[in-house]
């Protein structure tokens, strides 16, 4: 779908992006991670040609993006930025309908599309359609930003730290919603963030950048298991890497059959992450947890002792990718 090969961007003498290559398959969620100034935003902005790359090739469905008209190309690609960039002089509805109107959709179609999107993003039409951006909270404004990006149903979505300016609770909620949205819409997403947890939560392909170069890329588990160097390791949380890893697997994957002995007092749902389950063990001072299904019926158990002795089975798993 999107392929960057040996892409370079120079501002004068300064090398902002240096020989960057990666591929994003259709329907994949790719996160560009790195500290600020590492060139991740620049890379993103080259994909919709807000910046032109200096060298290398950027392909969209196998075609160099320079073959497209830049304006037409951008109308096919959704774009969300941290400060929302909503037009302050337009209502929410008009902001969302921007790209369809640019594409000259008939107004009734624009109208129904706007309502559909507001519904999709949990913005009641009656309440929000005629509000102006300055009347919205940060979370609401960013929902409108996402709705605007999705308006013309683009296959590709570029997101530049979309949740960076939100408070932790709103951020988590919007991350959750984005994940749910992605599981329904299957867009191809390139997502820039400096928050490694956000990247691990949302993406299935990570590209870690530093000083304009790609340091390492792969699935979240690949990176957690085999960080390429000290930088990636510290980025991934150093010693807390184990917990982050645990955060990516479900209790169900490590569950043992119910043992005939007395079941443990503490119960956790099988859909919980292993990380949260470990936290419950620490809180309740117990080595064993009873795993329950959504109907609160015991289906298995989790044992700290067994967890530690688990073979590193998922390593072989990773290599299949």
């Amino acid at each position: 779908m999107i392929e960057l090969s040996h892409v370079t961007k120079r501002f004068g003498d300064e090398m902002a992006v240096d020989d960057v290559s990666f591929k994003v398959a259709k329907g994949e969620f790719c996160a560009l991670v790195g500290t600020s100034g590492c060139g991740k935003s620049t890379t993103l902005r080259m994909i919709n040609r807000l910046l032109e790359h200096s060298e290398g090739e950027i392909l969209l469905d196998g075609q160099p993006i320079r073959d497209f008209d830049a304006v037409q190309l951008r109308r096919r690609i959704g774009y969300v930025i941290q400060s929302t960039g909503l037009f302050p002089h337009w209502t929410v509805a008009r902001n969302i309908g921007l790209v369809p109107r640019l594409l000259k959709w008939p107004s009734t179609k624009v109208h129904s599309r706007v309502e559909q999107l507001m519904h999709l993003l949990g913005l009641p039409v009656g309440e929000f359609a005629h509000k102006f951006p300055h009347q919205l909270s940060g979370g609401q404004a960013q929902r409108v930003g996402v709705a605007r990006a999705l308006a013309a149903d683009p296959d590709i979505l570029l997101m530049d730290e979309p949740f960076g300016a939100l408070d932790p609770i709103t951020r988590e909620k919007l991350q959750e919603e984005l994940r749910a949205l992605q599981s329904r819409l299957h867009k191809t997403i390139v997502f820039v963030t400096h928050d490694i947890d956000e990247a691990l939560q949302l993406a299935n392909h990570l590209v870690v950048m530093r000083a304009g170069r790609v340091v390492q890329q792969g699935t979240p588990l690949e990176l957690l298991h085999h960080p390429a160097d000290k930088f990636v390791e510290s980025m991934l949380g150093g010693v807390e890497r184990g917990l982050k890893q645990a955060g990516l697997t479900r209790v169900a994957d490590h569950m043992l059959p119910l043992s005939p002995t007395l079941p443990a007092q503490s119960r956790v749902p099988s859909s919980m992450s292993l990380r949260q389950a470990l936290s419950v063990m620490l809180r309740d001072h117990t080595e064993r947890l009873t795993v329950v299904d959504p109907h609160d019926m015991p289906v298995g158990e989790l044992s700290m002792r067994k967890l530690i002795r688990e073979p590193k089975a998922d390593q072989g798993h990773d290599r299949e990718h």
């Binding site: 807000l50 304006v71 951008r74 930025i81 960039g85 037009f87 605007r148 990006a149 570029l158």
Partner: peptide, 14 residues
Amino acid sequence: SPAVIDAAYGMGMD
């Protein structure tokens, strides 16, 4: 605001 202009170009306005 440069962010608004950036978004405007990013949305595909000429």
